[in-house]
Design a binder for these strands. Structure first.
Length: 286
DNA sequence: CACTCAACCTGCCGGC
DNA sequence: TGCCGGCAGGTTGAGT
């Protein structure tokens, strides 16, 4: 479940059902799922055995679980990863990659990932809040109190790129992916190709506000689920799809002005815009 | 340093 | 029916 609201839904589920429990045994069913664990699958299994899960934290699209051993279990869902709580007797699906059994004999935590872009790893807890070193380059996200509005506006306007590319750069602001970038740009009435250096400070601030609004609304709806790939820890879909204004709505009318929404190829993927509310930028802005 | 692009995977859908 | 290209909520590392 890729973007921030979906990952936060998972974080809350893990916090509720996994925090406080002790891992009895880990099992790696596909080594690629732990490729970021540099010392290999056997070591991954070894260091998790007997570790208690103290908490569940998130920055952007990354999750990490501080452990009683002083290490953290880091996870990223990639494009198709799921973290599911399932009873021991539940059948193993075809994309089950990692299984964690707990000493209480309760529901297992299963990492299921069709495309294997996601993964798990155990790392030393180095930074504040146990932030592992491999997440040091990940900027604060729109829902984090650490994200400073003025600093974000300055950093965004200092970039020499276009605004959507900047939003997707996790070292500038994290948690924003293709859906919520398009949704926030629509709300802020900005075209994806708008050069960042032409953004006024108020426009940058409005864009951040739009990100916060759309992500807060999506989170309240349990996230966006176009299909069964994006589910919470109990396998349930969110219903924010109905709250989307542009993403996936090519040809349908803009709910603000009525013009048909358009899908443009951009950065080897898709961007959805209202061509009337979000006109392509002219060469100069001032 | 800043930026672009291909690569990593599987599955689904539409066109021929 | 089958094959093929295109596309999908992401990240990273090599190359310019």
């Amino acid at each position: 479940m890729p973007e921030l609201p979906e990952v936060e839904v998972v974080r809350r589920g893990l916090k509720r059902y996994v925090a406080g429990r002790t891992i009895k045994a880990a099992e790696v069913l596909h080594p690629r799922a732990v490729r970021r664990h540099t010392t290999g699958p056997e070591d991954f299994v070894r260091v998790l055995a007997g570790a208690a899960v103290n908490d569940v934290r998130r920055r952007g699209k990354y999750l990490w679980l501080p452990l009683s051993t002083g290490s953290v279990l880091v996870g990223h869902l990639g494009m198709s990863g799921q973290l599911l709580l399932q009873p021991a007797g539940a059948t193993d699906g075809p994309h089950l990659r990692v299984r964690l059994q707990f000493s209480d004999g309760g529901p297992q935590l299963r990492f299921v990932d069709q495309r294997t872009f996601g993964g798990l790893a155990v790392s030393p807890a180095t930074g504040p809040e146990g932030l592992p070193a491999e997440l040091a380059h990940i900027a604060p996200d729109p829902l984090s109190p650490e994200l400073d509005e003025a600093a974000f506006a300055t950093a965004l306007r200092r970039r020499r790129t276009n605004v959507k590319r900047a939003l997707l750069d996790q070292s500038l602001i994290s948690g924003v992916g293709n859906i919520y970038a398009d949704e926030a740009l629509w709300r802020a009435r900005l075209h994806y190709a708008r050069p960042t250096e032409t953004l006024t400070r108020p426009a940058a601030v409005r864009l951040l506000a739009a990100l916060r609004e759309v992500m807060t609304a999506a989170l309240a709806a349990g996230g966006t689920s176009f299909d069964s790939l994006y589910v919470n820890v109990n396998g349930e879909s969110g219903y924010f799809e109905r709250g989307l204004e542009v993403y996936g709505r090519a040809g349908r009318p803009c709910r603000r002005c009525g013009a048909p929404i358009r899908r443009d190829p951009f950065m080897n993927r898709s961007s959805y815009i209202c061509p009337r509310c979000q006109p392509r930028p002219r060469r100069a802005h001032w």
